[in-house]
Amino acid sequence: MRHSDQDLRTLMRAAQGGDRAAYRAALAALADWLGGYFARRIAPAQVDDLVQETLLSVHRKRSSYDPDRPFFPWVAAIARYRWIDALRARARRPETSLEAEPPVASPEEPVLARLSLDQLIGHLPAPQARAITLTKVEGRSVAETARLTGQSESAVKVNVHRGLRKLAALVESE
């Protein structure tokens, strides 16, 4: 069941007063919403982990929600914050490849994720965009990417690293 902003405001107001049933209902509704939110932004295999991390953040920082204000802008900001963290974590591991990730659950998810990612990658300089597309989206190795792009291996690593950092900054400034 899809909850309205007003439903969740009411549930969170009750939760801040200590109502556990209301809190459980709010978190369950949030888990569903977050699943959809992250499905368009990150590799499907990572969605569950990110939903859990975000729910923990919501739990830890629930007092930062003011029930007099809309609920979804609050939770979307926290979700984006955790997403940026995930992007940064990937930027710190430029060697990581999607090859190691398990197969996706449904055919639409990677397409939507790719659409969202393509929009962001369009803002990067061409060498960074190409290096990220080949290593992070298509899952090629650094050596293979270097051969295909004519960049040295260390240039590929630097471009991936810088590109992912720039992506995180782009997302943050949205």
């Binding site: 801040q16 200590g18 556990r20 809190y23 978190l27 629930r62 007092s63 930062s64 003011d66 029930p67």
Partner: peptide
Amino acid sequence: AAELAPQPA
């Protein structure tokens, strides 16, 4: 939910 305690905004 089990560990929820009242917490003012």
